[in-house]
Amino acid sequence: MSNYSEILFRPVFKENPIALQMLGICSALAVTSKLYPTLIMCVALTVTVSLSNFFISMIRNITPSNIRIIVQMTIISSLVILVDQALKAYDYETSKTLSVFVGLIITNCIVMGRAEAFAMQNPPGVSFLDGFGNGLGYSVILIILGTIRELFGTGTILEYEIFPLVQNGGWYVPNNFFLLPPVSFILIGLIIWALRAWQKDQIEEPEFKMSENSPEIIPNPPPTPSSKGST
């Protein structure tokens, strides 16, 4: 049992796809300016990654290894099209806001990464859980971003007014910077910092070591030509 919950919750904080593996950043920048579309995006990605893991794992034993990436992509893109179609039918407003980013789940590295790293080696049930867990990990970061950006960018959370705006007779001047994609970079950076301060083992070994500024490092001056030589 603990094994299952480990598979499900490991990707949330310990191996978060965005914060540790640095995957799926593109959509994290693009769709988080408002919380509601963010939530829909989280649901869309979680459904896609869980189901794609499930189906890919189901046929893993007959999948020829030299076309496995194509097989994975076919399954993933079919699922994404389905999610996109369902969204257009049942939540048209949000599908307009998310526009191309639902379709771009196909290229989201989390989905492909989990298929290749987990679903190809494990049975369907566990693969589904792994996908769901990674979806949750993605969602946690996106929801944090969405909440902060909507709150400071427009003074609302889920369209419900928290800070009354100056335009509507309140005191809060909305910070438009929070509506622009780059702010997500900064926020993701801060989240990673916080996460690594808490979970020290996530800190990576530096690839290059800075050398000390010691006199030994300075190379010996080239030998000066002797002036005492015979002429």
Partner: peptide, 19 residues
Amino acid sequence: KDSTLNITFVGIGLCLLCS
């Protein structure tokens, strides 16, 4: 699973099913 026959079968089958 890496025989040409299986590659053809899985490829075509999967595409038909998905579409």
